[in-house]
């Protein structure tokens, strides 16, 4: 993603889709690399007999902790260098298994202007190759006004 140009609040249209972010196909090697990077050795991500026989899972699971990184990447890249990802929430509703390719999506659900910056509400999720949703969520992003200053850093939430 080119991070050069800021995105402005005024340019966001309700209903518009964020560019889809695709990750995968996710192999056991991807999952092992992620487990090593965060030093988390939960066996359900690399020990297939343990996952199936002990935890009664259908196979090796893509880490929820990895899927949430993809959501943050989608949002961070979309708000650009002058904006800020303020709030994100998501639920791990369904499992994603090794071998799947994930599509991380977002859509502008609402927006409201404020003094200094505007807030954009996003609906988001992660679908696999069969279109099954696994990780529905929402986010609140802060974007600068056109002709205004960057969103304050550190981020200062709007006064209630």
């Amino acid at each position: 993603m080119a991070m050069g140009s800021p995105r402005y609040f005024e340019d966001c249209e309700i209903g518009a889709a964020l560019p889809l972010l695709e990750k995968g196909p996710l192999t056991t090697t991807h999952l092992m690399r992620w487990s090593a990077a965060m030093e988390n050795w939960h066996k359900i991500h690399y020990d297939k007999p343990f996952a199936i026989e002990h935890d009664k899972l259908p196979g090796l699971l893509v880490n929820g902790s990895l899927k949430q990184q993809f959501i943050l990447q989608l949002l961070k890249d979309w708000v650009g260098p002058a904006g800020w990802v303020w709030k994100v929430s998501f639920q791990f509703r369904a499992m994603n298994l090794v071998g799947e390719t994930l599509s991380i999506w977002g859509k502008v659900a609402d927006k409201r202007a404020g003094p200094g910056y505007g807030l954009v509400e996003i609906d988001l999720g992660i679908t696999n190759g069969e279109g099954k949703e696994s990780t529905p969520g929402k986010a609140t992003l802060a974007l600068p006004h056109r002709g205004g200053t960057p969103v304050p850093y550190p981020f200062v939430p709007p006064q209630a």
């Binding site: 880490n63 800020w84 990802v85 303020w86 994100v88 929430s89 998501f90 791990f92 969520g137």
Partner: peptide, 9 residues
């Protein structure tokens, strides 16, 4: 199992 998160940055 990881059920999900709400995060503020």
């Amino acid at each position: 199992l990881n059920g999900g998160s709400e995060i503020e940055f």
